[in-house]
Design a protein around this nucleic acid. Structure first.
Lengths: 225, 225
DNA sequence: CCAATTCAAACAAACGTTTGACTGAATCCC
DNA sequence: GGGATTCAGTCAAACGTTTGTTTGAATTGG
C-alpha cells in the first residue's frame, strides 16, 4: 500500500530500502532473497510484506528510491541548464554539455551510487519490467531530454530532432561504457581501480569528443523524416 | 526399419546448450530454472546433472559455447587483421579498424547472438564469476588486443600502450552502447526497433569517430608511466 | 487503551539434485 | 553365431532445502 513519505519515515522502512539498493544493485531480482535483506537491515522477515506489500513492492520502491537519489545529485545542474537554455547561446550550450558529462562520469565512477545504480539501470534496460517505467520517467528521460535540448540548441535544431537525440545518446554512452566495461578495461590496463588521474583523463576525452561530435556530420542526417 | 517422422533433433547436450544460451541471455543465473530449460529442450530433468554435473556446470558450458560461437563469427576478420598488422601500414590500420567496428555493431544489433550475448557478457562484467574468465580468454581479450594493436600500429605505439587500450575501449564502447541503451534510445526516438538505415548511420558515425579519435590528443597521454 | 509495528512460527510452492529402474545398442565370451 | 554382459543415456519419482508469504500473538509509543 502507498505510504506518505515526507513526514518522519519509519526507521525500518528506510533501512530496508538502503540495504535493498546495494543488494539489487549487485544481484538481480531472483538473486536476492527476502531473508538476506531483512537480516542485513536487522529487521523481521515480515517487515517487507508490512511496509511494501511483498518482495516485488520492495523492488519497485527501491528502484524509485534509487532514481530519486541519483536524480537529486544531478538536479542542480539540470535546473541550471534548463534556465541557460532560454538564452540560446550555442557556445554556452557546448560548455554546459561538456561540464554535465564530466559531472556524470564522476557520479558513475566515484559517486555514492556508482556501484549500485548501473546494475539496476542496465538490467532494466536489457529486460524492462514495471521498474523501467519508473527509471525512465524519474531519471533517464529528464537526463536524456536535457542533453538533447543542449545539442539541439547548439545546432539550431528542434528538441525533437532525431540527430540531436542520437548525439546525446552517443555522448552519454561514451561515458557510461567506462563504467560498464570497467572490469575488462582495468584487466587490460593491469589495474584494479580507476585513479583520479584516469577519471580526469576520461573527462578531457569526453570534452574533446563532445566538441567534435557537435559539428560532425555523421549523425546529423535524419534518414527517416 | 522405422522411419523418423520428425526431423532429427540435435543430441540432448546440444539442445540443452542452445536453449540455455537464450535463457541465460535474457534472465540471470538465479532467474533461470533447470526445469524450464529441460522442458524447452524436450529433455529430462536429470539430463543436466548427467551431461554437465549440475546447473552451474551447464551455465559455464553455456558461456563457453556462446563465447566460441560469437568469436567464430569474427574469426576471419581478426585473422585478416593479424596478418595485415605485419605490414604496419598506418592508413591500412585505420581502414581495418573502421571496417571491424562496422561488422561488430552489425553482430550486436542484427546478428544471430545479438539478443543473448550482450546479456551474459554485461552481467559477467558487472559481477564477474568463474564464467568471466572464460569470456575474457575466449572473446574479450582477443578482440580487445587486436583492436589495441591496430590503434597502436596507426599511432606508432607499443601494443602495451595504455592510450591505445583506452582508444580501443572507447571505440568498442561507442558501438556497444547502442545495443545496451537500445530500450531508452528507441523510446526517445519513438521507434520499436532499429532499421537498416539506423544501423548504416551508426556505422558511418563510428567510422568518422574512429578517424577523429586516432589523431585526437585527449586519450593519448599516459598519465602514469 | 488503541493503533502501529515487530516478532517467531508455520505455510505451500518452487528450487537443484539424487535415485533406481529402464532402454537400446555395442561388446564380450563360450 | 547367439545368449549374457556392459554401458551411455533417458525417465518418472522423490529428496531435502530455500523461496516468498501469511498468521496471530507480542510489543511499542502516543
Amino acid at each position: 500500500m502507498s505510504v506518505s513519505n515526507h513526514p518522519p519515515l519509519p526507521e525500518t522502512r528506510e533501512r530496508l530500502l538502503q540495504v535493498a539498493v546495494t543488494a539489487f544493485g549487485q544481484r538481480d531480482y531472483d538473486g536476492v532473497s527476502t531473508r538476506e535483506i531483512v537480516e542485513a537491515a536487522e529487521a523481521n522477515i515480515s517487515a517487507i510484506s508490512y511496509h511494501f506489500g511483498g518482495k516485488r513492492g520492495l523492488y519497485l520502491a527501491t528502484v524509485e528510491y534509487l532514481a530519486e537519489q541519483f536524480h537529486k545529485q544531478m538536479a542542480p545542474r539540470l535546473e541550471e541548464i534548463r534556465q541557460a537554455l532560454e538564452a540560446s547561446d550555442a557556445q554556452a550550450c557546448a560548455d554546459l554539455l561538456c561540464e554535465f558529462l564530466g559531472g556524470f562520469v564522476e557520479l558513475l565512477l566515484a559517486g555514492e551510487h556508482g556501484e549500485s545504480a548501473p546494475g539496476i539501470i542496465f538490467r532494466e534496460q536489457h529486460r524492462p519490467t514495471d521498474a523501467y517505467d519508473i527509471l525512465y520517467r524519474k531519471l533517464l528521460q529528464p537526463m536524456h531530454e536535457t542533453l538533447t535540448a543542449l545539442v539541439a540548441c547548439y545546432r539550431g535544431e528542434s528538441r525533437e530532432s532525431h540527430s540531436a537525440m542520437l548525439m546525446a545518446h552517443a555522448l552519454l554512452g561514451q561515458g557510461v561504457i567506462f563504467r560498464i566495461g570497467r572490469t575488462t578495461l582495468l584487466k587490460r590496463l593491469g589495474k584494479t581501480a580507476y585513479t583520479r588521474a584516469d577519471i580526469k583523463q576520461l573527462k578531457r576525452h569526453l570534452s574533446g569528443y563532445c566538441r567534435w561530435l557537435l559539428d560532425a556530420p555523421h549523425l546529423a542526417e535524419d534518414v527517416i523524416p
